[in-house]
Every structure is written in C-alpha cells, then in structure tokens.
Design a protein around this nucleic acid. Structure first.
Lengths: 340, 340
DNA sequence: TCAAGGAATTGAAACGGTTCAATTATGGCA
DNA sequence: TGCCATAATTGAACCGTTTCAATTCCTTGA
C-alpha cells in the first residue's frame, strides 16, 4: 500500500504539500495539484484513517448504539423500518461530510453506556446519536458528565442543556383533530399514556390546543389514561363504548394501541372507519396493511436522521453548542377515519 | 486523556509490559497485572484505536454497506426486520471478538464498490460482509480482485472461490411439501421466479426432490414461472384456478408473492387456508398479521448474521480460507395452510 | 533594481500505540 | 552453590499521517 511519502516522491513535492492537498487543496498550486492527482491515481492511494486520526483527533465516525433484544423477535416488534429510515437520513448527512457510522449493539442501557464510553474513549467516534429517550434518561447524564458530544432523538425531562431533534407531536394531534372535525366529528376521545413522559405531555398539550382551535369541548370521560400497548387500546375502548354517549372518534398515541381499539370495535360489531374513526401514531409498516388501513401520524424519520447528524457535526466542529430542532409530523389519511 | 506511558509510569513498569497486558495478559506477572489494572482504573484509560491499528494493521472493525433507496419508502418494502435481525447476529459475533460494525450506506452498486474500496483502502475495516447477492454479482469480482476479505450472504453463480453463508432453500421447500402432504394435499402448484437465479434454482431442486420424496408427481401445468412480486402471485393464481383441475395448494418463493395469491383467491371467493392452502417464503413481519396469517418459511437471520461474522473473522485471522456454511430454514405453520 | 509581502513549499516533530530483540529475574535441579 | 531454562520485562524503532514554524518563490510597486 502506498503512503503519503511515495505520493510526494512521485509528484516531486513534499509530504506536507500532499497533506495540504488532501485537506485544503486551495493551499496548493494548481500545477502541483495535477501532479499529486496523477500520483494518487497511479498508486490508487487512500490516506490511512488510523494515521490521520492519530494526529488530527478526528475519526470521521459517529456512533450509533441500537438496543438489540436478546432473543430473535423478528415479527414481534413493528418499530422496524423506522430505524432503517433514520439510518438512511443519518447516512445522507454523514456521507455529505465524509463521515461513517459506527454501530455497536447493546442489549440494555448499562451495556449501552459502557459501549459509549469505550467508543469515545478509544477514539472510535467523534460523537454519538442517542435514540429512544426516556423522561429521565440516565444516558444523557452519563454522556454529559463524560463530555462526549451527543445529540438525542427526542427530549427528556432533565433540566440540562443538550442537543436534540424532536417531532412536534402536539402538532400531529392538532392535525388529526382538525381532520376529524372536517369529517364532522365532535365526540373525540383520546387514549393517552401517563403524562409523566415528555412526548405524551407534548401530545396532550396539542390535544388541548387542537380541541380549542376547533371549538370542541374536552369531555373528561373521553380522556383515558392507558399506555402504548395493544391491550390498553382494547380495554380503553371497551370503557369508552359503554358510555351513555360514546365517542365517534378515538385518538391514540401509537399504532399498536390503535390496533387494540380496532379489535375491540370489531368485537362489538362496530365498523372502524365508519361507526367509529380511529387515528394511530407512528405509521409502522403494518398499519398500511391493517383492516381497515389505519389513518395515522407519520414521523419523518429520514429528515430526523439527517438533522441529527447535521446537528452533531455542528457541535463537533464547534459551530453550534446545543442545537434544538423540531420537525413537523404528517397526517396519513387512510380508511380508519371517515365521516360521522 | 491518559496514554500508555502514563499507565506504565503509575504501575511502575514499562510501556511494553502494559501493551502485553492489554493484548496477552498471560505474558505479564500477576502482581504486575494488579498494578496495571489499578492504573487503568485510576486514569479511566482506553487504548486509542487509531494508534493501535496504525502499527498492528488490525482495525477491529468490519464493514457493512446497506443499499439505501433514495426515497423515503418506510412502509413499502417489508424486507424490514430481516436487516435488523441480521445485524443482531453479526453484532453478537462481533462483540464476542471485540469487533465493531462500520456502516456506510450506498444508493447503488457502483457507489457500493467505491465505498468498499475506500473503507478498506483507508484502513477503516478489516473485511466486509456482502448482502443481496445476485447471480453474477460484480461486487464479488471486485472485492476478489482488490484482495479485500469478504463473506457473502447468499451464493452467486460465479465460478470463483469465496466465502459464503447461505440458507438451504431447497430444504425449506421440502419441509413445506411434506407439511402439505400430511394435510392430504397432492395437487401442489409452485410459482417460481426465473431459474436463472441461484436461490430459485436451489428451491426448484428442493421442489423436485420434495415431490419425489412424498411420491407426488409434478404436473407441468402446476408450475408457473413468475417473479417475486405481489402481482405475479395474483396473475399466476388466476391461471392456476382456471385449470380443469386446479391445485389445492400453492407454494411461492416469497411472502409478497403469496399475498398476491391470497388476494386472487379471495376475489374468486375461495377461502385461503381452507379451499386452497398457500405457503410463503421469508416470514416478513406483516405475514403474521395477514388475513389469514401466512404459513411461511423462515430464514434464521440471527444465526446467519452470526455465521457471517464468524466466517469473516476466521478468514481475517487466517484460520479458514473460504468457509462455506449452509443453514436450515424453518417452516412456520399458520392459518394459510389447512387440510384438503 | 530592490524591498515588501503574500503564496507556495518544506521537513522535522508529534500523535500513542505495537513489536521484537535484548536483558534481567526466577525457580528447579544436580 | 552454580547452571540452565524459562518467565518477565525493557525500550527503541516504527506505523503514516498532520501540524507548524521556517524557508523559498513570485509579484508588485517605488
């Protein structure tokens, strides 16, 4: 394998100049550039990343640590393509900046933190992207303490400054309510997981605001505190449908929960999308193939990935300190919502 | 950040000994080990990957270049979790050997080859895992020519020696036929994509063998050359069901094609799993939630990932030259197959 | 013709590990 | 006690870049 010295020799110049050409071509005279290019071509030269990063301190890599369940559970979890789309976005921004992605799976959060420390400590990565943020995420505290540059996808409740990209979930709920109103719905129920979660709180705020904007009064009995599970959707629906005046539409906080709602409606011989409208959140891959196809709120994962990477790079390069970015979700209208 | 020299100093030993401790602790006296461990703990020391690989030539990283479609297509392609599961398997074997995974997406195969060359040329990775092998895959030729260590998931038709891990698709088809036979089926149809593909040919061989083993004669009119699309499943089924004596069971080469079969059956007012049994191939995440739930052949992606990584490491370490491994798929029996 | 100053180039030191031949310590045995 | 084999340790050279102060080259204006 050729080294920078051989390139310099063949191009009849010094290694310093070749290095300049590699990093800041404008410093090098055009005629010299030509000769260097010829030599690089001739030897099929690629500067060694190890040598480069040893001296320069930049690895040109960022770390991503997906949580990997310890058992095979292919078809269980429908979070599926979201990760791939996020990756696609991250990759796009990375490639534009000549960065690569280093992946090292972990099976739990304490593993994950060890991995972060190792990746950064060993100088494998310049920074880290965090996903699946929890309300008091210990990983955020850890990375902050270790002074490891990082961006998160989603916000925590921690009173700390850090960079994040987040979806404006409240906006999504507002869109859904507006859509339902336009179909004539006024009796709108909302199944929300515990408001101790940051994202749920945002959505709740959106719910309040959306109802207000559309001049609909929030009825306490239409608001049910559940969780993200299919079961929760099912049980909550049972309660809702047994009310004196049951709602004509149900908002949920994720698709899986909406699937539970649909199952319950079917069991009660109600036609989802006709008798009762249902809106999910996430647009997981199966929601398009559900019966009926699910109206849901989609998070733009590619864009999120792109922004995550962009923000991280800005931090690493010292251009921004703690960038905050909010992106708008999109309402995907399918069969599970219809006129009253 | 501490360096090996500071560790040596505090542990009152030489850098050579610390290096030995790091790489081959058995070379170091126990008492010395203790002191070194204390020093490492004290400084929270992590040996720098760049320095290490600069001299040792090992990066402790392998490369993976997923093809990333240029547009957002979250819920279109159900290949979804397969990649994640593969990754999980690769990651497990990687972690056991202190390896990390470097990911760098590409949008097409020529991009992909450039990426391979860069990753290996710059010394970012020790070897590469190739997926989505085609019958005359140019990437295989390229990597072979450039002497880049690699393993593929799947075989090509190229008359070259290289390492691969593959699923014994033929075995899967045999299992499916045996299952159908046990349900009383004798009129079994098979929709197969063009036999020019390696994997289709394997499956065809399995079909022939499986029918023979179960003493069923292959009827020419029950064999339809289609492709992997939903449409192909639909069209082929139309032809099959209009035969004088239509088949009672249909084998396909992937789940999406099977979905097409099911759609056609429903349109013809036939009940899939009752009037006609249908078997898919892949067990994509939605097949479990299909109507009816799809009987299909599952590829053990975790295991495949694990074997891929293991084989690659063996090659890198010179333990094996071109390991070949075949894994057995598993028949997942659900609702789309039933007694005649 | 010369001085000044910017553009281009130079080369030695530095980054933080690994490697290996050489050296020293240790234990077993006659 | 002395000798030998083996275990443990040492430290200088090296890996291939980047960095930067120093030097040379070139142009311009007086």
């Amino acid at each position: 394998m050729a080294t920078i010295r051989e390139i310099a020799k063949r191009a009849n110049t010094s290694i310093g100049t070749v290095s300049n050409y590699l990093n800041e071509p404008s410093l090098v005279a055009e005629s010299t550039q030509k000769r260097i290019e010829e030599a690089i071509e001739f030897f099929d030269y690629h500067p060694k990343a190890a040598a480069r990063s040893l001296k320069s301190r930049y690895t040109h890599r960022i770390g991503l640590v997906p949580l990997i369940s310890s058992e095979d559970n292919r078809s269980e979890n429908p979070g599926d393509n979201a990760f791939l789309e996020l990756l696609a976005g991250i990759n796009t921004a990375a490639a534009e900046n000549k960065y690569d992605i280093l992946l090292s799976g972990a099976t739990n959060h304490s593993d994950e933190m060890k991995t972060y420390q190792r990746l950064f400590g060993e100088g494998n990565v310049d920074g880290i992207i965090l996903q699946g943020i929890q309300s008091e995420d210990e990983r955020i505290l850890f990375l902050k303490k270790k002074k490891i540059p990082f961006v998160t996808y989603g916000q925590s409740d921690l009173p700390i400054q850090y960079a994040y990209v987040d979806v404006d979930g409240g906006q999504g709920i507002i869109q859904a309510i507006t859509h339902l109103k336009s179909l004539g719905h006024k009796r709108i129920a909302y199944i929300t997981p515990s408001k101790s979660l940051m994202c749920t709180r945002q959505r709740w705020d959106g719910f309040v605001k959306g109802m207000d904007q559309n001049n609909i009064q929030i009825k306490d009995e239409y608001v049910i505190e559940g969780d993200f599970s299919e079961r929760s959707g099912y049980e909550s629906t049972k309660v809702l449908m047994n009310l004196k005046t049951p709602p004509t539409a149900v908002l949920t906080s994720n698709d899986v929960c909406a699937f539970g709602v649909i199952r319950c409606l079917k069991e009660m011989n109600l036609i989802p999308g006709k008798d009762v409208s249902v809106v999910g959140f996430d647009n997981v891959s199966i929601s398009k193939h559900w019966q009926p196809e699910l109206t849901t709120i989609e998070q733009p994962f590619r864009k999120i990935g792109f922004l995550l990477m962009e923000s991280l790079l800005n931090m690493i390069q010292g251009k921004e300190e703690f960038p905050h970015k909010l992106v708008q979700p999109e309402l995907i209208i399918r069969e599970s919502t219809g006129p009253v």
